[in-house]
Design a protein around this nucleic acid. Structure first.
Length: 265
DNA sequence: TAGGCCATCTGGTCCT
DNA sequence: AGGACCAGATGGCCTA
């Protein structure tokens, strides 16, 4: 290989690396967009990639159940669907969010206690302030777990610790119900914010993930005996409920609880 | 210290 | 030839 050819090859490799980086950034941006429409979006406690995908899967499943079988979103089943296959920390996060999301009073208290703008300030504008022009009234035009719970006056269980989600180290903080409504047409009325990545693009190769690596509360290993304690909403039956649901397709019958088996990712 | 998670680099494969 | 996509390898940070 001549020197000129080596240089060409090297230049090509560098270009390919840059493209690959860009491609992965695009993928991460998409993942971040997905995080924002999840029921427990938090800027400070990002779900890991795998947990984001799992929660998204469960969210679709749970909302489908609400629509198709009329299952109440305030039921244990709804939370269990959301948490199916998630790690214990993520399950706790979701359960905590579903409980705290509906209560502006609690959110405001948390804002006072935790300081800084956050969930409390978001409550007034959410979910009703999300414009849904041309869409029917909720839940048809705006369907998100915490919204549904709010509409139905959901009240969570009583905790030993009355504020399981407040600035504790055991449960990640909840940034507020930032989740925009999901329209039935499949479009998200997404309030576009600049992706975190956009402002982190001028990093040297090894900087990017340092910025966010310590924000991930979850692990992919799932909850095991001896792990963090399950959220009270989940303690009763999380590991005993044999929910057999297939996600290989989104056909109507794919979400039934008795026809096929739940496929773990 | 081990394990989880991440970004990046790299070579292979497929497609245009 | 060049771009997109993929998966394996590598190394760094964080947490338990």
């Amino acid at each position: 290989m001549t020197k000129a050819r080596q240089e060409r090859f090297r230049a090509r490799r560098i270009k390919a690396n840059a493209r690959e980086r860009s491609r992965m950034h695009g993928l991460n941006d998409a993942l971040d967009t997905l995080r924002r429409v999840m029921p427990c979006y938090s800027k400070t406690q990002k779900l890991s990639k795998i947990e984001t995908l799992r929660l998204a899967r469960n969210y679709i499943w749970a909302l489908s159940e609400v629509l198709e079988s009329g299952q109440s979103p305030e039921s244990h089943g709804f939370v269990e669907m959301l948490c199916k296959g998630l790690s214990q920390p993520t399950s706790n996060l979701v359960a905590g969010c579903l409980q705290l999301g509906p209560s502006p009073m609690i959110l405001n208290k948390l804002e006072d206690k935790c300081g800084g703008p956050g969930m409390g300030s978001m409550v007034a504008g959410h979910p009703l302030s999300y414009p849904s022009p041309g869409l029917p009234s909720p839940p048809y035009g705006s369907l998100e777990a915490s919204h549904l719970l709010q509409m139905k006056g959901f009240k969570g269980p009583v905790y030993d610790n009355p504020s399981p989600n407040e600035c504790s180290s055991s449960t990640p903080p909840y940034d507020g119900p930032l989740t925009p409504p999901l329209s039935i047409s499949g479009n998200f009325a997404l309030k576009q914010e600049p992706s975190p990545h956009e402002s982190e693009r001028n990093y040297t190769p090894h900087h990017a993930h340092y910025l966010s690596s310590h924000h991930y509360p979850t692990s992919t290993t799932g909850s095991l005996p001896g792990g963090p304690q399950a959220h009270p909403l989940l303690q009763a039956s999380r590991y005993e409920l044999p929910l057999d649901v297939a996600f290989d397709s989104f056909g109507k019958n794919s979400f039934s609880n008795n026809s096929s088996s739940f496929t773990e990712w």
